[in-house]
Amino acid sequence: MLAPGAFANLLTPKAGGSPNANQIHSLYVIILYVAAVVFVGVEGALIYSLYKFRAKKVRVAAQIHGNTRLEIGWTIGAALILVILTVVTFVKLPSIINPPNTSAPFLESALSEPTPPNGKRLVICVQGRQFIWRYVYGAACESNPFSAKLPYSYQEMYVPADTTVVLSITSVDVIHSWWVPSLGGKVDAVPGNVTYTWFKAKGPALYHGQCAQLCGRQHAFMTALVNVISPTQYQSWLSQQRQAISTANSQVTQLRSFLTRTGNL
């Protein structure tokens, strides 16, 4: 997944990780076909006229001032192409923005956008900060992402396979943008705002992503990894992570009290 060929994605965006990314990919391909026809047609007409109508070959230019029918014709033609693309986009749109049902055994459910039809999903809060992503697991993160009870991780996100994962995205400093190409489009992480996206990935797989909005000097290193594992592995990872966090917290508490006692803090 991390080492595609040298000429990966020459003409189409990345996809394959999540239904929304796949739907965007197929919408893109439809536009690409239409665009290719227009491109070849117009460039062809340009190159043909540059070749065919040189002064060497055509001594006298035809003195034509215009043609109203032609003008109306290509105006309507161009508009029709765009009407078709509009219809295609709005037909595709629901499959891109509305998450499907979780197919794995459900983990939890809550009410906030976006929601799959049966409401079963995993909420992960994504917090952008210079220059790392922080992930807080569980719907309770939406009320307080710094709640002591919630497991969290940095940079690498762990998610269960076949589960609709809803991301609730914000930033604690400047604007960042959450983007894992294979798992769907990007969403800005704007301080003071909460934005949402979702994905539903098959596993096991590892997806690479990167902050897409200029956020400062180390913007280039603000990467993200999404590690898709089985739901049981996910459960055990969660308890491990809880364990690790509480161990680290108690160590810090001990250290703090030691330092305070000895007058070093």
Partner: peptide
Amino acid sequence: GVKIFNWISTMWRGSL
């Protein structure tokens, strides 16, 4: 698009 079509039509049957 209308502009591009008109420019190409200006060259069409011209004496470039």
